[in-house]
Amino acid sequence: MEDRKINEKESLELIAQMIRNTRNKLAVGSGRPFLLFGYVSVAFALVIWLLLRATDAWQWNLLWFALPLILWPVVIRIYKNMMDKTTYVDRIIKYIWILTGFTIIIVCGFTLLFVQMESLFFSVLLLGMATALTGLAVRIPSVAIAGIAGMVISPAALWLQDENRLLLLVALFVLVFVVPGHILNYKSKTAQ
């Protein structure tokens, strides 16, 4: 494009073309935050599972609180470097995940300090919901289905009582983070 005058028809075509170009195009590597959260969460779950089996001290569960502290700054950095534009859908997705993260911290904090709640069930339910909403917002049904599948399976955490429930958590992290992460990366690459 140059700094030249255009006729009225060209103006309308140009406006339509530019709007089409920006609509619903995923940034390359959109799945990276999902993959980071997914693989690190799986590693955390396995390490805590091993520690609980070895020592039987419930306090190892407190390690979960370190997860957002470690990952949030890294995810924010990845997100900032990756995005060459911000769309309205990006903003909505960002707030879905911020709110989900805060809600999980509140639920886990309450469980620890005041009322006994099934924090594992609530956490996975909320993570599945956030993944499903992300999939719906970016119009990738397979991501939404992975999130909904996570939500459907999450009540299984209510029946498993010992440390083996962490193995269920590993499977759910793969379902709601790792699988959608790879799908988003693939779709963003092929959409360019």
């Binding site: 030249r4 255009i6 170009n21 920006t22 060459d84 911000t86 309205y88």
Partner: peptide, 21 residues
């Protein structure tokens, strides 16, 4: 009413923000 300026404005209208590149 200039090709490039209209292109920039149309682009920015459909996103929250965009970088120079």
């Amino acid at each position: 009413h200039s090709e490039l300026r209209l292109g920039i404005m149309s682009l920015l209208l459909s996103v929250e923000d965009a970088d120079f590149v």
